[in-house]
Amino acid sequence: MLPMVGLAAAPEMIPGISVARGLQVVAGAGFLLYCLVFFGLLIARLRLRARSSASRARDADTTDVATADRP
């Protein structure tokens, strides 16, 4: 019966509505921060992986001519 009273009352009359809205704003900001950190780490990981694969490819292309003919 108590939840039905909440439906009939105006949002300003419910005692904890301002606290709930504040918590919702804080949770939204926390989720945004979480997403920004996640994408930042993902981009950093992809850039480091691309840099290491590029340096390995560059190292594979340069062979020592002096030692290439030795058995």
Rank of each mutant, 00 (worst) to 15 (best):
G16Y: 09
A66R: 12
A29L: 10
D61P: 01
M13Y: 09
V19L: 15
T63S: 06
L42W: 15
V25I: 04
D69Y: 02
D59T: 14
A54I: 00
Q24E: 14
V37F: 13
T62P: 01
R58W: 03
A66N: 15
G28L: 05
L42E: 13
V19E: 15
A44Q: 12
A29D: 15
S52L: 05
A10W: 06
R51S: 13
A10C: 04
F31N: 10
Y34I: 02
I43N: 12
I43M: 13
D69I: 04
T63E: 06
L2H: 07
F38K: 08
V19R: 12
L33D: 01
A27T: 02
L2M: 06
L2K: 11
S18V: 06
R56Y: 05
M13F: 03
L23C: 05
A8D: 01
R21P: 01
I14C: 03
V5E: 08
V65G: 01
S55V: 06
G16H: 08
T67D: 09
D69V: 04
L2E: 11
T62K: 08
G28C: 02
A8L: 14
L41H: 07
S53K: 11
Q24W: 04
Q24P: 00
D69M: 10
I17S: 14
I43A: 15
L36Y: 07
A66C: 02
T62D: 14
R45V: 07
I14E: 04
A20K: 05
P3F: 14
D61R: 10
L23H: 08
M13D: 09
M4V: 01
D69P: 10
A9G: 08
G28D: 11
D61E: 13
A44T: 10
V25S: 08
L32I: 04
G22E: 00
S53M: 07
S53A: 10
L32M: 11
V26D: 11
V65E: 08
Q24F: 02
L2S: 13
S53Y: 00
L32F: 07
V5F: 02
A54S: 12
A8M: 05
S53G: 08
R56F: 08
L7Q: 08
L2P: 01
T63D: 07
